[in-house]
Design a protein around this nucleic acid. Structure first.
Length: 106
DNA sequence: AACCTGACTTCGG
DNA sequence: TCCGAAGCCAGGT
């Protein structure tokens, strides 16, 4: 499934995501940057899409740079939001997460 | 190879 | 703040 994505990059992404503490969130770009390729946000997305179950990743803790959930209603949005709320993450009236409070700072 | 798509991001108006 | 466009990288057709 992973094929040509740099194995090192892949491993780093997996490790970083597993390190996001409960109740915190990270952005795709943030993970990509810490993994060594700040332009690979879409690859982070791809890794989550393809390996979340296999790697047992807390996939719900990765959201977009706007502080919103990227998945669309009916295709995962509700589940992700519920999982985050269950661990204490708060969404404002604009459906955004306050990075000052919830962004993961390694 | 060409083209489309996506759980992305940045920048300009 | 809010789009739209452009940049980005891989995978699927």
């Amino acid at each position: 499934m992973m094929r040509d994505i740099e194995p090192v990059f892949y491993q780093r992404v997996v490790r970083l995501i597993k390190n996001i503490p409960k109740g915190k969130v990270a952005t795709y770009g943030q993970i990509a940057e810490y993994a060594g390729n700040r332009r690979a946000a879409r690859e982070v997305s791809y890794i989550l899409h393809s390996s979340s179950e296999k790697e047992n990743l807390p996939w719900q803790r990765v959201i977009n740079s706007k502080g919103r959930i990227s998945m669309k209603p009916g295709r995962g949005y509700e589940l992700q939001k519920q999982l985050l709320q269950d661990e204490g993450v708060v969404f404002d009236e604009e459906d955004r997460v306050d990075f000052d409070k919830f962004l993961w700072q390694p």
